[in-house]
């Protein structure tokens, strides 16, 4: 039982516990239809969490992911739908901006927290410019994809599993993944062995941008239209998801599968509380309590292991 195993077991256990609680409170959820309703909104959260994970992996933090996802959702619901060429160009441009942001943060030694906070206003402004009042519509193929009803297992379960596995192989098994984790763990060592940290950071941010775009698109596929403020909550949700899933703020220590499970746990926690008929005044606090509880349990385990 290595540390990595423990790291992934705890999120799985907390998700299982919550799921059992939800099934107990609302047996109707225990069906294809129910699971889809419970988890379909977790798909864009999971994608945003992966984006945040890429940034946390290189020892930075991204406070703009929520507004960025909103921006991507607005582009998807407008340009991608009406003018696909312009729309996709804009989304590619947005990814390029993300990569450039990573490069600038590294080259000028800027604190990522400040740069991304600044960028969050930029994305928010762009989103309002593109979609001054809520509207737009989802491209038909995207809507069909998110609403698809494959046999036996709903999309809401298939998508997170696929995302988690792909990112697991990329981060944990591929050589680029190892290098990126190295940048977060010890960038000087990577630098001295002849790799361009600048390039690697830009890559990490670029991949984060890509997942931000995917998150925005998935969200529009589900909601069928966009709103400039649609995903503001994703900034904090994504950070919480990564940490809940076994990641740490000190770079290089992340778990993609854990992050996806973390995102699902957070989504489920909100449903669990509403099934409990808990007053909304207490819900934010209760959500926080669940988060603290999971982290506290994790701390107990890791401490014990360190002592052993």
């Amino acid at each position: 039982m290595t540390r990595d195993h423990l790291r992934i077991l705890l999120p799985i256990f907390s998700l299982g516990l919550l799921l059992a609680g939800v099934f107990y409170l609302q047996p109707r959820a225990m069906s294809y239809f129910g699971l889809n309703l419970l988890f379909n909104l977790a798909v864009p959260v999971a994608l945003a969490t992966i984006a945040q994970m890429m940034i946390l992996m290189v020892n930075d933090i991204d406070l703009s992911i929520g507004t960025f996802v909103s921006f991507c959702a607005c582009v998807t619901a407008t340009f991608v739908q009406s003018d696909p060429v312009v729309g996709y160009a804009m989304l590619l441009g947005a990814i390029a901006v993300y990569a450039a942001m990573g490069a600038i943060i590294h080259a000028r030694g800027l604190p990522a927290i400040v740069v991304t906070l600044g960028m969050s206003f930029f994305w928010s402004g762009m989103a309002i410019l593109i979609l001054p009042s809520p509207g737009g519509s989802a491209p038909a193929w995207l809507h069909a994809m998110m609403k698809a009803k494959p046999p036996f297992v709903p999309v809401a379960i298939i998508a997170p599993v696929v995302i988690g596995l792909i990112m697991h192989y990329f981060v944990k098994r591929s050589s680029l993944g190892v290098l990126l984790r190295g940048v977060g763990g010890n960038s000087q060592a990577i630098d001295r062995s002849g790799w361009s940290v600048l390039g690697l950071k830009a890559t990490a941010y670029g991949i984060a941008g890509l997942f931000g775009v995917l998150s925005g698109m998935a969200l529009v596929g589900l909601t069928t239209s966009a709103d400039a403020n649609i995903a503001l909550r994703y900034t904090l949700l994504s950070i919480a998801g990564v940490i809940l899933g076994g990641g740490e703020f000190t770079g290089g220590r992340v778990s993609p599968i854990g992050a996806v499970i973390g995102a699902m746990t957070l989504t489920l926690a909100a449903s669990f509380l509403s099934f409990l008929h808990l007053s909304s005044d207490w819900q934010i606090g209760a959500q926080g309590a669940i988060l603290i509880l999971v982290l506290a349990v994790r701390l107990v385990f890791t401490r014990r292991e360190a002592l052993a």
Binding site: R233, T267, A270
Partner: peptide, 24 residues
Amino acid sequence: DAFTTSENQATEQAAQIQNMILQG
């Protein structure tokens, strides 16, 4: 029954409505 989302966010309200569907 009245339910209020803990934060004024569309994504949260969408989840809340989906929960209501499940609650029948």
